[in-house]
Each structure stands twice: as structure tokens, then as C-alpha cells.
């Protein structure tokens, strides 16, 4: 096990140098985590408004009868309901504000931010089904509790290792999801029923989501009116994007290009099948599209050029 871990941490390199040894990566990583804590505050801001995908605070206060607690929100039943809900919101707000100011100074503050965000996610997920659009953000907050103390000798490399660890989780998550979809495809082909290879596969997903959400999606009518091989091509393309994600973890120079591909993937899903992972997309943008590793300047075309040059020289 130890050998596997050591191999994992010794492998990531860019231009014959360990990615954990570069100053510009640290500077960028530091800025990205500052932005992350701002996005947590922004999410908290959204939770008080009425125009986001988050349930409004007033709906939650009026929904005590529908409360089906998750493991993280069971304690709310011991308080008077409106006070308990307001407490979760205020705690989230205070910790998010503290996070923006003090994240780099105190592990306790980062732990409180993670707790505030987790409590909020637990609350909004306690009405029948769990919400998935904030899971990656919550886990990133938990992961950042591990950021090292500034006084330690290995502060900068350790700092970057936490970011790389989060990248590993994000990209592996996609790959595992892709594996399940491949297994699902194989099972449905074997049974001889509609599958991801059918001309109506994605249309079935889209209409099912619509049935549950009551919403209509941008490309839904096209999926229904123009069935054809373009639909399974898109769907299988999406599955391969998910499946291949893990391979790009160690392809440091391709992080940004792959980040853009994943964002386009989520955009295509939102337009056709419906699930809105916009908060998740922010995490992809921060830590994959704007990956602190690789070239010291952000230029996607330059990344493509470097890639083609490298291939030519090989």
C-alpha cells in the first residue's frame, strides 16, 4: 500500500520537474483556493435569494412536515424548526465569511467552513432525496481542512498535494461513473432493451428527467423530433469523456484542455438531459480548467501547441 502511495505521489511531473516543486503552481493554487472560499460565500449568498436552483429559505422553513433527516441533519429535530433552519443559514453565512478572510491562517476556520457547507447540504437534502450538485464542493471544503500549516518546512509542496489529491478525486469520480455507464450499456445490450446505443436512449433520459422535474430542456424537442444515430453518438461520446478522465490526472499539460471538455460535457447534459451541475462546473473550472499545474501561463492554444510539438519530437 505504501509503495502504491509513494508511486502515486512521485509520478506527477511536468517538463521533467515534479509539479509539487514549482513556485508558480503554488502561487496559482493559493489564488484558486482563495477563489474557492469566495465561491462558498457566493453559494451562501445564493441560498438567501430566490433565483437559484437552491430551495429558498422560506420554503424550507415552511416544510417542517416534509423533513426526512439525513445523518448530518438529525440534530435539527431537537430545536424549534424555524430557529434550527435559521441557525444553519446563519452558521453557514458566518463560516463562509470567516473562510474568505481567514482560510489561509487557520485550520479551524477551514474546518468550520466545511461544517457550515456540509450542514447546509444536509439540510437541503433532507426532504426525500439527496441533492448532488454540491457534493464536490462540500468534499473540496473537507479536503482543504488538510492544507498544511504555514510554519511547516514542506508547506508549499504539501499545499499543492492537497490540490492534486482533490483533482484525483474529481477525475476518478468521472471515470467510475463512466465505468458504471459502460456496465449499464452492456447489461441492456444483453437484455435486448433500449440502451445508450439506441436512437432514443438520450431522449428517454431527457423525458424521464422532465417527468420528475416538470421542466423542458433546450434540446429536448430536437431529441424527440429528430431521432437518429447522432443521439447515441453524443451519448457514447459523453460516456467516453467520463471514462477517460482518470488518464488525464497524470497528463499535467492536458489538465486545462480536459477541464474545458468536462465543462462542455456538463453544458451538453444541461441542454439535453437536464441535470444542472453548475456549482460542480465551478469546481471543474477552478481545479481542472485553471489547474495550477503545467505551463506557467494560462493559454489553452499554447497547451495544444505544446502537446503537438511534444508528439512531433517523439
Amino acid at each position: 500500500m505504501r509503495k502504491i502511495f509513494n508511486l502515486f505521489w512521485s509520478k506527477p511531473s511536468y517538463g521533467n520537474q515534479s509539479i509539487f516543486d514549482t513556485n508558480h503552481s503554488f502561487e496559482k493554487g493559493y489564488f484558486l483556493i482563495s477563489l474557492f472560499y469566495f465561491f462558498v460565500l457566493y453559494l451562501c449568498f445564493q441560498s438567501f435569494t430566490f433565483n437559484s436552483q437552491l430551495p429558498s429559505w422560506s420554503e424550507i422553513i415552511n416544510s417542517q412536515a416534509y423533513f426526512m433527516p439525513q445523518w448530518g441533519s438529525g440534530w435539527l429535530t431537537i430545536l424549534e424548526w424555524p430557529s434550527a433552519v435559521r441557525f444553519v443559514y446563519i452558521f453557514f453565512l458566518i463560516t463562509a465569511l470567516l473562510g474568505v478572510v481567514f482560510w489561509s491562517r487557520s485550520r479551524i476556520i477551514r474546518a468550520l467552513v466545511a461544517l457550515g457547507l456540509f450542514q447546509y447540504l444536509s439540510l437541503i437534502s433532507s426532504f426525500g432525496y439527496a441533492d448532488h450538485f454540491l457534493t464536490m464542493m462540500s468534499f473540496a471544503a473537507i479536503m482543504f481542512v488538510l492544507l498544511p500549516n504555514k510554519k511547516t518546512k514542506t508547506y508549499k509542496p504539501d499545499f499543492l498535494k492537497v490540490i492534486f489529491g482533490l483533482q484525483a478525486i474529481i477525475l476518478t469520480t468521472y471515470s467510475i461513473s463512466g465505468i458504471y455507464k459502460m456496465i449499464g450499456l452492456a447489461k441492456q445490450l444483453k437484455r435486448g432493451v433500449s440502451s445508450a446505443l439506441s436512437s432514443n436512449g438520450m431522449t428517454l433520459h431527457s423525458s424521464k428527467t422532465s417527468y420528475f422535474s416538470g421542466n423542458e430542456y433546450f434540446l429536448q424537442n430536437y431529441l424527440i423530433d429528430y431521432p437518429g444515430y447522432w443521439i447515441p453518438t453524443l451519448q457514447v461520446g459523453g460516456i467516453f469523456i467520463e471514462l477517460l478522465s482518470i488518464f488525464f490526472l497524470f497528463k499535467i499539460g492536458l489538465h486545462r484542455i480536459w477541464g474545458l471538455i468536462l465543462i462542455i460535457f456538463h453544458l451538453a447534459i444541461a441542454m439535453s438531459v437536464g441535470p444542472d451541475f453548475s456549482f460542480h462546473t465551478l469546481m471543474i473550472a477552478l481545479f481542472i480548467l485553471f489547474s495550477p499545474f503545467g505551463s506557467d501561463r494560462y493559454d489553452l492554444m499554447n497547451d495544444v501547441k505544446l502537446l503537438t510539438k511534444k508528439k512531433a519530437s517523439n
Binding site: 498544511p148 511547516t152 509542496p157 498535494k161 489529491g165 478525486i169
Partner: peptide, 27 residues
């Protein structure tokens, strides 16, 4: 970066464990 020796730090171990824990709890 001062030629720091970063192998086997506590943070590295903790991040490795977090990754393992994440997938155990997810599966």
C-alpha cells in the same frame, strides 16, 4: 523551492487516506 524533501509528509499521508476514505464511503 529550496530543494524541499516532501516525501512521506503527514499531509501526503492524510490526503492519501482521504482519497481512500472518499471511495470507501462512496461505494
Amino acid at each position: 523551492m529550496d530543494g524541499l524533501n516532501y516525501s512521506g509528509t503527514k499531509v501526503q499521508f492524510a490526503v492519501s487516506m482521504m482519497i481512500v476514505l472518499y471511495f470507501v464511503l462512496a461505494f
